[in-house]
C-alpha cells in the first residue's frame, strides 16, 4: 500500500497536467467566448479586453502562459469577476464548501458505519432487511431530490432551519444531510457486507472460543478489518461529495466553490473554471493519497508490500 501511495504521488503531477490540458483545450475549442453575453460591446473594447487577457494569442501560447503562472502558484485573473483573481475567489468559496463537505462526510461515515454494523450483527433478521432496504432507497435518493424535500419540510413547513443562504452553523445542517444521505447509504451497505464477511472468519471463531463477549468481538476484532472497504470508498466518495456539492450549493444558495464553477462554465470564465477543476482534481488526488496511507496504517500486512 505504501508503494501504491508513492505511485499516487508520482502520478499526481502528470494527472493534473492532463486534467489542465484537457480542460484548457476543450474550452478553447468550443464555440463562443467569454465576452459573448455582453452583446453591446464595441469591437475595439472587446479587442482590448481580449488583448488584456492575452486571448488574442495562439492557444498554445496561452496554455504555456497559464502553465507558467501555475508554476508560481498563480491561477490567473477571473474573466468575469472584475479585478478578482481566481485564487481569491476559490479562497472565498473553499471554507464554505469545506464546512458543508466535512459535515456531510462525517455524517455519512458515522451514520453509515453504525447502520451497517447493526445490520451485520442481526444478519438476515428483520432489522437487517429493513435497514438494507432503507439503504437501497437512500442510494436512489439523489441530493437534488432530497435537498428541495428537506427545505419543504424543515424550512418551509416546520420553520426549524433556514431554507438557504449562508448564515451561521444552522445553515450547514440541511445541505450536509442532503449531501450525505446517498453516501451514508453506500457506507452502510459496505460496512454491512464487510462486517458480515469478517464475522464469518476463522479468527472470529477463535475469539468466540476465548469467551469474549460479542461487543468486544465486534469492536476490537471485527470492526477494523471491516472498515478497510469503507476507507477505500473515501476516495471516490470525496469526488462524489464535490459533485453533489455543486447542486446542493445551487439549491441552498450557498456561496461555495461549486457555484463558482457552474457560473464560470456558463459565462466562459476560462480561468475560473480551470482553477476550480484543478483545485478539485488536486483535492481528489490528495484524498486518495491519504486513503492509501490510512489503508496501510489499518492493515499490518499491507505495510510490508
Amino acid at each position: 500500500m505504501l508503494s501504491r501511495a508513492a505511485m499516487r504521488l508520482l502520478t499526481a503531477l502528470p494527472t493534473l497536467l492532463v486534467l489542465v490540458a484537457l480542460s484548457f483545450f476543450l474550452m478553447h475549442a468550443a464555440p463562443g467566448g467569454p465576452f459573448d453575453s455582453e452583446r453591446s460591446l464595441a469591437p475595439e473594447i472587446e479587442a482590448r479586453l481580449a488583448a488584456h487577457f492575452h486571448l488574442d494569442e495562439p492557444v498554445w501560447m496561452q496554455f504555456g502562459r497559464y502553465l507558467g503562472g501555475l508554476l508560481h502558484g498563480d491561477l490567473g485573473p477571473s474573466l468575469q469577476y472584475e479585478g478578482r483573481s481566481v485564487a481569491s475567489l476559490i479562497a472565498d468559496g473553499a471554507p464554505v464548501s469545506a464546512a458543508v463537505g466535512a459535515a456531510a462526510l462525517l455524517l455519512a461515515i458515522i451514520g453509515g458505519v453504525a447502520i451497517g454494523a447493526i445490520a451485520a450483527m442481526r444478519r438476515d433478521g428483520g432489522l437487517d432487511r429493513g435497514l438494507m432496504l432503507l439503504a437501497l432507497v437512500g442510494l436512489s435518493l439523489p441530493s437534488y431530490v432530497v435537498a428541495p424535500l428537506l427545505i419543504l419540510v424543515f424550512a418551509l413547513a416546520l420553520d426549524w432551519l433556514p431554507a438557504g443562504g449562508w448564515d451561521g452553523p444552522s445553515s450547514v445542517l440541511l445541505p450536509a444531510v442532503a449531501l450525505a444521505l446517498p453516501q451514508m447509504a453506500a457506507v452502510a451497505r459496505l460496512t454491512r457486507g464487510a462486517l458480515g464477511d469478517v464475522l464469518a472468519a476463522p479468527w472470529i471463531r477463535t475469539a468466540r472460543a476465548k469467551g469474549l463477549p460479542e461487543r468486544l468481538i465486534v469492536f476490537r476484532h471485527a470492526l477494523k478489518p471491516a472498515l478497510l472497504p469503507v476507507v477505500s470508498w473515501l476516495g471516490p466518495a470525496a469526488a462524489g461529495l464535490m459533485t453533489g456539492s455543486v447542486v446542493v450549493e445551487q439549491v441552498f444558495g450557498i456561496p461555495g466553490i461549486g457555484r463558482y464553477f457552474v457560473q464560470g462554465a456558463l459565462n466562459r470564465d476560462y480561468t475560473l473554471v480551470l482553477g476550480v477543476v484543478l483545485f478539485y482534481g488536486a483535492l481528489v488526488i490528495a484524498f486518495n493519497f491519504l486513503v492509501d496511507l490510512a489503508y496501510g496504517a489499518l492493515d499490518p500486512r499491507a505495510r510490508l508490500e
Binding site: W203, A209, G211, H221
Partner: peptide, 25 residues
C-alpha cells in the same frame, strides 16, 4: 454462561494456525 466457560475452563485450539489468529491485532 458459555462465555464464563469458554477460554476460561474449556479452551480450544483450531486446525488452521494461519487463519485462526486475528491478522489485524
Amino acid at each position: 454462561q458459555l462465555d464464563r466457560v469458554r477460554g476460561s475452563r474449556i479452551a480450544m485450539v483450531f486446525q488452521d494456525p494461519m487463519s485462526s489468529l486475528n491478522p489485524y491485532l
